[in-house]
């Protein structure tokens, strides 16, 4: 008896499976896919569901993780369960959820890009597979250095697509990449790199490269005031430049940035030369 009844629903499901096509679904239900993509990247998920116990994420730690696809699927199923009242609805949803899940996962990489819809990218679409992984960062660094630049690599050294990078609180940051994350590089934000008075040597104004032979001594006065005008004049003379504006002054006095590189069991801090080739 049971097999007879189930057989009927199986039949319904098969019919639905053949009638819902992925291509069509993606086009026709773009809002729906959009919303599910966001859910699949854990948008709106309360923090307690991500970190059930505080000691899982102590201060000054960087924790790697793999995203559980089965969790995401249950989560999306829950979201699609509203209005699922009859067995007929279930047979429809069972066919739909497969398509919706695949579409949502494929659309994932677009979620970040759609934050700025009018920005132009060189590559049309970023492809991500079904594997997602990432990191949680709980550190003073998140609040002190706003705008950390984060890149991820897999074991082969390929750069991974960043699908979500967000501050969850002022000290906690969540990053999700498409692929299997092996190495995370955290660079100091370049827009807020500080200037200093003990630069070893000047940089070429045109190319931005170090000129070990060109130096300017900077001496603050007894009130620790820096004679900015004088420094600009000295730099102008030493480099024989036309003029020194605030832009060139910043270029000359900027201090180098650090990049921290982490894997699950190693860490390394590299000093980056900020300057490079220029026009």
């Amino acid at each position: 008896m049971n097999s007879l009844v189930n057989g009927k629903w199986e039949e319904n499901r098969t019919r639905f499976e053949s009638s819902i096509s992925e291509e069509e679904f993606k086009k026709a239900e773009s809002t729906f896919v959009d919303l599910l993509s966001k859910y699949s990247l854990l948008y709106e998920v309360p923090f307690i569901y991500l970190v059930p116990e505080e000691n899982q994420l102590p201060r000054e730690t960087l924790k790697f993780f793999e995203l559980d696809p089965y969790w995401i699927q249950s989560f999306l199923d829950g979201a699609c369960s509203i209005g699922r009242n009859t067995r007929y609805d279930v047979s429809h949803d069972e066919a739909m959820i497969q398509v919706a899940y695949r579409c949502a996962m494929e659309h994932n990489a677009q979620v970040r890009r759609e934050l700025v819809p009018d920005r132009i990218y060189e590559d049309e679409r970023q492809k991500t597979g079904s594997i997602y992984s990432g990191f949680l960062l709980h550190s003073q660094m998140v609040s002190d250095y706003n705008g950390l630049e984060i890149t991820g690599e897999d074991e082969k050294g390929n750069e991974l697509v960043l699908v979500r990078l967000e501050h969850l609180s002022h000290m906690v940051m969540l990053g999700i990449f498409g692929g299997r994350l092996h190495k995370v590089k955290i660079a100091q934000p370049k827009e807020s790199l500080h200037l200093g008075i003990n630069s070893s040597c000047l940089r070429d104004i045109r190319t931005g490269q170090r000129r070990p032979d060109k130096k300017v001594e900077i001496k603050p006065d007894e009130n620790r005031r820096i004679p900015v005008g004088e420094i600009a004049k000295n730099i102008k003379n030493v480099l024989a430049a036309d003029k020194i504006t605030s832009a060139e002054l910043a270029l000359e006095l900027i201090q180098n940035a650090y990049t921290a590189v982490y894997t699950k069991n190693t860490k390394e801090v590299i000093l980056d030369e900020v300057s490079g080739a220029a026009k």
């Binding site: 819902i20 599910l36 859910y39 829950g78 979201a79 609805d89 429809h92």
Partner: peptide, 28 residues
Amino acid sequence: GAAWQLGRLLALRNQELLSALYDIRRKN
């Protein structure tokens, strides 16, 4: 179960998602 329930609760307050879901079912 918790994941499923959370999905359901979040969807309940997301009108956009609900109307999209209703539309899909109706069409199909």
